[in-house]
Design a protein around this nucleic acid. Structure first.
Lengths: 342, 342
DNA sequence: CTGTTAGCGCTTTCAC
DNA sequence: GTGAAAGCGCTAACAG
């Protein structure tokens, strides 16, 4: 122990926590500091957490470490956490590894939890709520309102759909996210709003509810392609589903964007590398991670009761997967009338 | 407390840790179990860790959460950790957020550390070693031998290069990883060995040392393309650098694979989605995560002293970025002689 | 300015 | 079979 500096442990404690209330003789402080350096002493975090009832650890639940959307959020969260002197513990929740986030909280391993998984069931959330656990939702909502940090998904969706409309599309499909999720419904609402503002009717069979995965995007797009008069453009609520959509279009022997244009949400780093380079809406994911940590810490400190943040700043990144609509219908049934018809 | 079950805390402890040495009356056990259920009681992890000098937490250091290679490793590690009753704490180490892995260990927040970052300096590792900290290297090596879990990178590289040779290439460039890393040197050695086995001379200017990033792959490829007689095929030591290489080739107005073939290492989920779909060597990353946790736990339990594992099973995944060499040299200087020349 | 004391919530040894 | 007591390493209140 640093008691080899010939002082009481409490003095060491005061120095380490630089307790400004009590003054410590320079000579003593120096002696202790030297002993600390020599022994590479670091106070035991468990003892400290036990005493202070605070671990300085934050938890975050995501669906999958391979999903680049969450990678970006984690980056922001990790940065902000370390800035504020906290550690971050991320775990994914899926069938295999059942990260027991609730135990993490109950056992006092973490001070607060960020729920950033859309796969996370509402029932689990109400359990957190029932036990009055300190948590915050990230990039998602629930029916029962909670503290949350989200982006402006409605605006982002409008950006995407207006881009398609500006190119001349009027037959615009939507591969929505799960419509029981906040991001899914908001993006869907943005889609409808954009159509309405341009006087384009909403056509229910052009809507397909999918998950945020490549597979479900593929399947959803297949359904749209089987329509007698398929859309000339598709707004996919996610990058992964947009990639699945492109695969489906290729499999059907059609070309993106010549036959069908595709826009996705989330400008992940490989969006520019796929074929064709994907037009996307860039959402402020990094900022979301930062804000999530800020808000959670505020909540922990009781500085704020309802910490609900909506981060502005979605941005359209135009690449090669969108272009003007083809002049003839895909099925060859009739000539397109184009934007002039509206 | 569960002492509302009218028993001593020590009894609760025995029941929770199902201490088989001491038998407990069925009636008491039932009463305690009911109280636990009712209160949703979970023992405080900090108190427990303090007492037992064990946290059941494992740490892992990676360079970046956006790098899908590590995502795969984390997945495996998380699964195995939860299987063995441990929690996993991953943090990335970069200029911004300086996850202090050493403090994590010294403060007793984690029982052991997995170092899976090639960016992690050797000096930091010797510091870990000097303080006799329980750690293990994952997917990397150092000069001073340590416990490690790696894949067969030499074999993986041979797989890639032999594929190119089989297609008829003799002018094969290599965008190596950093040659001070184990993966970098092993893949380079596999490249040389494959060339040698086919009687192809190693041509030093065809070797370019790059980092494991898109940018460095781009730059390295540009250098190769500026050669008077550039290679007809390139083996990139990483997915990201292979993507950078493809970008460079496109920028120069050339086509993959018609003008130049490209093989990369690591079959990440978007390898099939880029343009052209990437031929890769799939390394056993998920298994690496699993083995890393197994080995670290063995080391912690003192079951094994030198835990060094090499995981077999690299696999070639052929897609669209490789084909037979062009019949004419790119620069147009002379006719290719092909494999027959050797 | 520094030492003494008590206690955070648990586990373990010993006593009954 | 269960309770009592001590102590893990720290911090906070109080004494001196």
């Amino acid at each position: 122990m640093a008691k080899l500096a010939r002082v009481d442990p409490s003095v060491v404690s005061r120095i380490i926590n630089d307790d400004t209330a009590l003054l410590i003789k320079d000579e003593t402080r120096k002696r202790v500091l030297e002993a600390i350096k020599e022994l590479n002493y670091r106070p035991n975090a468990n003892a400290r957490s036990l005493r202070k009832r605070k671990t300085m650890m934050l938890g975050m639940v995501i669906p999958d470490f391979l999903n680049p959307v969450y990678g970006e959020i984690i980056r922001g969260a990790e940065l902000q956490a370390s800035t504020e002197g906290y550690h971050l513990m991320v775990c994914s929740i899926n069938k295999d590894s059942k990260c027991n986030y609730l135990s993490l909280l109950r056992e006092g391993r973490i001070d607060g939890l960020m729920v950033a998984s859309s796969e996370f069931e509402d029932s689990s959330i109400s359990e957190l709520e029932k036990e009055n656990m300190p948590f915050i939702l990230v990039n998602r909502l629930t029916l029962s309102m909670h503290d949350y940090v989200i982006a402006d998904d409605t605006y982002g969706a409008k950006l995407a759909v207006n881009h398609l409309i500006d190119l001349g599309h009027t037959q615009i499909g939507h591969l929505s996210g799960p419509l029981f999720t906040g991001t899914g419904t908001e993006r869907f609402q943005g889609y409808r709003a954009a159509l309405k503002e341009s006087g384009i009717d909403f056509f229910p069979s052009y809507l397909h509810e999918t998950g945020y995965t490549v597979e479900s995007g593929y399947e959803g797009m297949m359904k749209l392609l089987e329509l007698p008069d398929p859309p000339t453009a598709v707004f996919a609520a996610n990058v992964l589903s947009s990639i699945g959509a492109i695969q489906a279009i290729k499999v059907k022997g059609l070309t993106v964007p010549d036959d069908i244009s595709v826009v996705g949400v989330h400008d992940v780093f490989f969006a520019s590398m796929i074929d064709p380079a994907l037009t996307t809406v860039k959402m402020p994911l990094f900022e979301m991670g930062i804000e999530a940590v800020k808000s959670l810490i505020k909540k922990l400190n009781g500085e704020q009761t309802g910490v609900s943040v909506r981060i502005p700043g979605a941005e359209l990144i135009v690449r090669k997967s969108t272009s003007v609509p083809p002049t003839k219908s895909i099925g060859g049934y009739y000539e397109r009338t184009g934007k002039a018809s509206k």
